[in-house]
Structure formats: structure tokens, C-alpha cells
Design a protein around this nucleic acid. Structure first.
Lengths: 215, 215
DNA sequence: TTTTTTTGTATTATATATTTACAATCCCTC
DNA sequence: GAGGGATTGTAAATATATAATACAAAAAAA
């Protein structure tokens, strides 16, 4: 079990998620052991970085033949996931919502999307990608009833601010906000803002700077 | 014009993009001037942060009645955007590709999506959200011909690695990678990895930690 | 046994971000 | 138009986060 007193850096968590995926792929190919420098090479980073990340989560190997792939996968799972599966809901089952759902479908993760909410009458009451779709007005009661921990906001930006209160009231613990609206949640609710417009502008800016420096 | 010798931090660029959007909204409402602490409040940050960001891009106001909204918008535009509009292409016009396109359509930005690429025969040759869709095999020639600077990779993860070479050959300068595949591009090409699975796992992890600490 | 390889970890370095502090200037009110 | 308050611009200090260096210890291989 990870040490609660020493928080694991965000970047490390991101890399663990990536290592895990790579390891699962290796495991499927029958690879049983992997050296830190091999795993590092697959991600374009250094072996020390890998070892340090594993140190931070308290993982250690008693052999020098590389890490046992299966054991490491299970260990990372123990860090990233709770004992109990965690349920997520998508608010806004448009293109983005469906894309996110597809990314998770059938992955067999402890993390799963179990409900969708929308206002489109054609969607409400139906099932999209095996996920039942409810009307957004039902969010508070349904989310509580279905034990939803995380809300993925993929609605239009214009309505995002109206979702803040229902999300709080439903007892949601974490929010992934894809809209451009800066949502203000009280402390205690983890919010990750993931605004695609901002991201693209950032890439464009650095491309622009790189071009200017070449001239 | 921004000073090339002093690179602007990534976080500042992100905030500038956010300020800009807020300012545009204010401008539309007829607000002509805005104080640093008001702008800060709208984003849940401090006034010093706002002023420092503006300092970094060389903006200064000669008045104490707050910043001139219109002037500031134009100044930020000058930082974020090139003189010439920058063209972007979407590779993989599935749900995610269409969602991204919708986010940009009609925004009138200097940054615009002008082409899509896919393998689906129903999409190739047609127009989706006013964007012409070509076959991925044509990517190299089309991208060069259409003066594409940025590629948005929203294809399935499984085919992402096959796109690396065409992207390099087409002279693409920046890549926004939505897939889980760690794409290795040569130095000089700006890559932003934006893996949704990793992101959700990160949110879930911090929710899990918060819950554990509450017990 | 000796050499090589690999791991685990402390320390150092670097980069980035934010806050504090304060002088300078403008605006408003009296 | 003078004083007080508000606002801006910026230097400096602090804090935070991240990655690189260095090296001891242990296992594996020769």
C-alpha cells in the first residue's frame, strides 16, 4: 500500500499510467521480465526516471533480471485504483462524450463509465455504447444512486456553469472539465481542466516561436 | 512584438488563452476596461499573477482605470497568433475529430482546421462540418499543398505509430496527440501528448487519495 | 573469484511558479 | 489642485516540482 504521507507527484502518476499500458502490452506478448532501461526506452525517458518513479510508489524488485512484468502491473494497479471499481458519469453525450466512452469501453479497467447525461430527447432513455443515458435534470439523484465518483463534463461550454451545483450536491469527488468555462468547485473536489482550445493555442504558440527562431 | 530571447512559460500561455476568451466575452458585453483583480477573480487566481503574465508578454497600460479590453485582446492575439493564419489538419475524423472541429468552427480564430484525413470510404471525399476529408494515404502531398502546420492525431491508438513518418515528411511543425501511443518525433517538432485515458486515471488517483485521507 | 550489470536512493541541479513587497503613477474626491 | 486611495509594474524572495548526477549494494555472468 502506498504511503499516504508522501504524495506522489502528478507527472509520476501520469507516467505510471503509461508504464502500465506498456507493461500490459508486453505481458500479452509473453514477456515476463523487463529492465528499467528497456521500459524507459519505450517511453523516451531515462532508466533512472523509471526507477525513481517505482521507488516513489514503494516498489522494489528482489532480482536483477529486470522487473517481473505481471507483479509490476499488479503493483501499479494497486496504486492507481481503489479496491472497489470507481464509477464515472459523462455529462454531455455528444461527439466528445462518445469518444471518451469508446476509449474506455471493454478495457476492463477498475475505472469505468457507467452513466451518461444529456438533454437531447433522442438520447435520453436510450443506451449509447452500452451506457444508459439519463436526462441531466436527474443528475443529482441518479449520480448518488449509481455511486458516481467522477463527472466528465463534455457539454457545451455555455451550459457548463449550470452543472456546478448539481455536481456538488451529488457528492461528486472529481471532475474532468473539457469545456472552456473555468468551473469553481469548493475545496475537496478535484478538478482537472482540459480545455482543448487552450491546448491547441499552446501548441500553435510554440510552433510560431520555433518558426520565428528559425528565421 | 514579444521578446524572443525570453521564452514565455507554458502556464502563462495557457492563462493568456483563457484571459483572451474571457476578455472577448467582456468585450461583447460592452465592457471597455477591466482591472487586474477583476480579471483575476474570474479565473480564481490573484491579481499579481495576471499582472505578471502581462508583464512577461510586454504589455503595459498607461492608465489606472484598468486595462483597455479591446487593446489587450489585440495584444494577446499578437502573442498567440502569427500574422498569417495557421492551418491544422485532423487525422481521424471519428467522434473526437468531429468534436474538436466543432469546438473551432466559426470561432473566427487565426488558428483553423482546414482538412481532415480518414480511411473510412464514407467520409473520404465528403465534407464534414465544412472540412474536406481526404484519404490518409494522401496526407503527405495534401498537407504540404494545403500548408498545414499542425496535425491533430485523433485516430485509434493502434494506427498512430504509422502516422509518424508521413507527418515528418509533410513538414508538420506541431502535433497534438490524443492517442495513448507515445509518438517519437525528431527534435524541432513540437509534440503535446494529451492522452485521455491517462488523464482520467490521474483524476481517479487523486480522488482515491483524497478519500483515503478522509478515512 | 572477478567483472559486469542492474537496481535503489541520496544529493544536487534545474526549471518553473507563485508570493511578497514596494515604488511609481494615476484617479477621484474634497 | 492637493491629499488619499487605488492600481499598476516589477524586483526579489520563496516555494514547488521535476529531472539529472553520482554512487553504493547486490545479483548475475564470466
Amino acid at each position: 500500500m502506498a504511503n499516504i504521507s508522501s504524495p506522489i507527484p502528478e507527472k509520476t502518476i501520469e507516467r505510471l499510467s503509461e508504464y502500465r499500458r506498456t507493461l500490459v502490452k508486453c505481458h500479452a506478448q509473453g514477456i515476463t521480465h523487463i529492465f528499467s532501461h528497456v521500459l524507459a526506452g519505450m517511453h523516451g525517458i531515462t532508466a533512472v526516471q523509471v526507477r525513481r518513479d517505482l521507488m516513489l510508489i514503494g516498489f522494489s524488485s528482489d532480482t536483477k533480471k529486470g522487473y517481473d512484468v505481471k507483479v509490476l502491473i499488479d503493483f501499479i494497479n494497486g496504486i492507481l485504483y481503489s479496491e472497489q471499481p470507481m464509477n464515472m458519469a459523462i455529462i454531455g453525450m455528444g461527439h466528445l462524450g462518445q469518444a471518451v466512452t469508446k476509449y474506455f469501453n471493454g478495457k476492463g479497467l477498475k475505472l469505468r463509465i457507467t452513466a451518461a447525461f444529456d438533454i437531447d430527447e433522442r438520447k435520453v432513455g436510450s443506451t449509447i455504447d452500452n451506457i444508459p443515458c439519463y436526462h441531466i435534470d436527474e443528475f443529482e439523484e441518479r449520480a448518488a444512486e449509481l455511486d458516481i465518483s467522477i463527472a466528465i463534463v463534455s457539454s457545451p461550454t455555455s451550459v457548463a456553469s449550470t452543472l456546478v451545483l448539481p455536481i456538488i450536491n451529488a457528492g461528486i469527488r472529481g471532475v474532468l472539465n473539457f469545456t472552456s468555462a473555468p468551473l469553481n468547485f469548493p475545496q475537496g473536489i478535484i478538478v482537472e481542466n482540459y480545455d482543448i482550445t487552450t491546448l491547441l493555442e499552446k501548441v500553435a504558440y510554440f510552433v510560431k516561436v520555433a518558426e520565428e527562431n528559425n528565421n
